[in-house]
């Protein structure tokens, strides 16, 4: 089967941006596909299977990124990864609960 190419534009919506946990989750999912996946931020293009490379983009809230995949499951890869980016806000909320034992100190920002 000829290598297919697919891409999707996403925006980082969570307040914490693409910190270690989202980057780790993104890299893990990206490496589960047969396709080679890259994440593009402005002129920077990195291998999406490495959390270190993903974090080096410094993608804060509001950053526009393009997910690009080349391979037989490219379309599935970009769809699944775009969906994962949408779950970053929920991931942040779980992290806040774990890191802040006192509920009064770090009230969660309202979900929007």
């Amino acid at each position: 089967m000829p290598a297919a190419k697919a891409s999707r534009n996403v925006v980082i919506a969570n307040t914490q941006g693409m910190h270690l946990r989202p980057a780790g989750a993104f890299a893990k999912l990206a490496s589960q596909f047969k396709s080679h996946v890259e994440l593009i931020c402005n002129l920077d293009r990195v291998d999406a299977s490495s959390p270190m490379m993903l974090m080096s983009l410094g993608a804060a809230q509001g950053t526009k990124l393009t997910i690009e995949a080349i391979g037989e499951d490219a379309a599935e890869a970009v769809d699944a990864l775009a969906e994962l980016v949408d779950s970053f806000t929920a991931m942040d909320a779980e992290l806040s609960l774990a890191e802040e034992p006192s509920p009064d100190e770090g009230a969660l920002p309202p979900a929007d």
């Binding site: 941006g17 910190h19 270190m52 490379m53 974090m55 983009l57 410094g58 804060a60």
Partner: peptide, 8 residues
């Protein structure tokens, strides 16, 4: 986030 960016 910026510290993680610098390190990585």
């Amino acid at each position: 986030l910026r510290a993680l960016e610098s390190v990585s």
